[in-house]
Design a binder for these strands. Structure first.
Length: 315
DNA sequence: CGTCTTTGACCAGCGC
DNA sequence: GCGCTGGTCAAAGACG
């Protein structure tokens, strides 16, 4: 199974389309009442009042059912949007237009251990760092995280809990948006790198590619340990998919930007039922807890939302 | 003044 | 071998 189909099936598993009975149960209530009327005490005034009340409830029931259907339509539209975006991202990873050898070998052999490059700190290794073949670097675990931002701005700053030092920026061939290169601020002791680039298709999406794993706790993790709410400081909230390029390993992290280490630790077990269940629960909770989603729900309920898609971004 | 960002130059891999 | 492309370096400038 390739990444995209795995993603789609996972999403299908995790968030099923909501369905609402087309027919409100008004007839059942009425027939029940009529049956009651035939076999009841015969108090016509009471029956009339009850019938009136039931009719009122039935009308309310119908109205609520229609609202619920609207909610479900919007929910399903959001769900389809999630599947579409994640699948597109996965397809792009599986079949890039032009892969360099080093990158494709990473895809084939990914999820390997982080390479210990402690030797680079030796006195003669500055040149080695520059001239050394990238074979070692490509063995580092590669993780992709998609960040939804407010809009198609130019900022490539992604607050993922770690401190980074920018060391380069490039315009790449297949994307008009520049790609920024970052090293962990703890370098050279921590050799993690990341590339950040806005998606060519949806510039409100920032794609961060992490190479390697931090050998130190994130600053936000420490902050969180101290009890602060680090998420309130985020200018871009990662809520999309974490996608390993090494194959069908996709982890959706729609709500909790600080779970990067958890995500990574789970990736080797990605095909396990436990992880799938985790994905299911996380996606379900993500959508239900997401303020945008609840806003969409509220809008749908209040009848203000029109069309299958909300005009605002889904994240 | 120290730190960080920007940006042009350089290098390596790859396809032709 | 040459050109294209991605990745990295490092000097210069910006900023606090």
């Amino acid at each position: 199974m390739d990444s995209s189909s795995w993603i789609t099936s996972s999403l299908d598993l995790s968030i099923r389309p909501l369905q609402v009975s087309e027919e409100p149960r008004t007839k059942v209530v009425e027939s029940d009442f009529m049956e009651l009327g035939r076999t009841g005490s015969g108090n016509k005034d009471e029956s009339g009042a009850l019938l009136e009340e039931l009719n009122r409830l039935a009308a309310e029931n119908k109205k609520l059912s229609q609202m619920l259907m609207t909610v479900c339509e919007n929910y399903n539209a959001l769900r389809n949007h999630v599947i579409e975006i994640v699948s597109k991202n996965a397809e792009r990873e599986v079949s890039p237009s032009k892969k360099r050898k080093s990158e494709s070998s990473t895809n084939d052999n990914g999820n390997e251990m982080v390479v210990n490059r402690a030797s680079e700190s030796s006195s003669t290794d500055d040149d080695d760092l520059y001239k050394k073949p990238r074979e070692e670097t490509i063995k580092a675990k590669i993780t992709r995280v998609y960040y939804r931002t407010e809009g198609p701005g130019t900022s490539l700053i992604v607050k993922d809990g770690h401190q980074w030092r920018k060391y380069g920026q490039k315009i790449t061939r297949d994307n008009p948006c520049p790609r920024a290169y970052f090293k962990c601020a703890h370098a050279p002791s921590c050799l993690v790198k990341k590339k950040v680039q806005r998606s060519a298709e949806d510039q409100s999406v920032i794609v961060a590619t992490y190479e390697g794993e931090h050998n130190h706790p994130s600053s936000s993790l420490l902050e969180a340990t101290c009890g602060s709410n680090a998420r309130a400081t985020l200018d871009s909230v990662p809520r999309s998919a974490s996608l390993s390029s090494s194959g069908p390993t996709v982890t959706l992290d729609l709500m909790k930007p600080k779970q990067e280490t958890d995500v990574k630790s789970l990736q080797p077990k990605v095909d396990s039922p436990e992880l799938r269940q985790f994905l299911i629960e996380q996606m379900a909770s993500s959508l239900t807890k997401d303020p945008s989603f609840t806003t969409a729900l509220a809008a749908a309920i209040s009848g203000k939302m029109v069309g299958p898609y909300p005009t605002e971004k889904w994240i």
